[in-house]
């Protein structure tokens, strides 16, 4: 009887298992599960390249409680494609300017590769750690495609033998013909200019690309091609790509979407 009571269950092989043995097994399973979770968490933490912690922004001429962005906290990892989505006035561009170091948080902080932007040289940060792509391309119209890319290399202080060759290589990478290198950017189409802007942002091999409505001025076909480039950069080159957008097509392509709400909705 005593033996009968002791063996309350059978294992996968049909062997009888006592209550005591079940207890030990459960404990072991739990420990393994915990370890696995911690490992996953650590791996994820290691991948986080940019962390926004309770960031708020208020324009200098705004009233005390009139925030353009309030208490935003997002994490971004390498190798992933992100979208920051939101209606007009939700502070998408403000967030982009905070991430790119063009503005500073009123409250909270942004941490890049373990360092707060507050403690970093933001000019250096912009010309070596991140690449920025704008909706309106922001290329210098009096320069050729390759000159725009080389200018960015110069700003970074990149020391390579042939900057022009490197520029052409980058152009080809984003789907532009080498023959466009000597063409003034104003003679290129919108999609081509955007590709030049992407090539420029890649010229010093940054860890993160930030794009503000990069396909806003482009047709569907070109939009898809540009998105494909960003996807490759994230998945194949392990870059963190953040796209600020309100395009559903973009949102369908990315790995993760962060939604921004209007400050008053948040309140």
């Amino acid at each position: 009887m005593a033996n009968k009571n002791n063996y309350v269950s059978k294992d996968k092989l049909g062997k009888n298992i006592s209550k005591k043995e079940i207890k030990v097994k459960t404990k072991e399973d739990n420990e393994l599960k915990e370890k696995k979770e911690i490992k996953e968490k650590n791996t994820s933490a290691k991948n986080v390249i940019l962390s926004i912690k309770n960031a708020s922004y208020r324009y200098s001429d705004a009233e005390e409680d009139d925030y353009a962005l309030k208490n935003v906290s997002f994490d971004f990892e390498c190798g992933k494609l992100y979208a920051i989505r939101g209606r007009s006035g939700t502070g998408k561009t403000t967030l982009l300017s905070l991430i790119s170091g063009l503005e500073k948080c009123t409250e909270g902080e942004i941490i890049f590769a373990g360092k707060s932007l507050k403690d970093m040289n933001l000019d250096k940060y912009r010309n070596s750690d991140i690449g920025i792509v704008f909706q309106s391309y922001n290329l210098l119209p009096f320069m050729t495609a390759s000159e725009n890319i080389i200018l960015s290399m110069d700003a970074n202080g990149l020391k390579i033998k042939s900057k022009k060759e490197k520029a052409i290589e980058l152009m080809e990478k984003v789907g532009l013909k080498a023959s466009y290198a000597n063409r003034k950017v104003l003679r290129l189409s919108g999609g081509e200019q955007q590709r030049v802007a992407i090539a420029r942002s890649l010229s010093y091999n940054p860890k993160m690309i930030i794009a503000d409505e990069p396909t806003g001025n482009l047709d569907k076909q070109t939009e898809s091609e540009i998105l494909e480039i960003f996807k490759k950069l994230a998945h194949e080159e392990n870059k963190c790509v953040i796209i600020v957008t309100h395009s559903q097509n973009v949102c369908d392509t990315v790995d993760k979407i962060y939604d921004l709400k209007k400050v008053k909705d948040v309140n």
């Binding site: 790119s100 063009l102 000019d123 250096k124 940060y125 912009r126 010309n127 070596s128 920025i132 704008f134 922001n138 290329l139 210098l140 200018l151 960015s152 700003a155 970074n156 420029r200």
Partner: peptide, 9 residues
């Protein structure tokens, strides 16, 4: 503006 954006001090 462009030059400042690409990180020229």
């Amino acid at each position: 503006g462009v030059l400042r954006t690409i990180g020229i001090s």
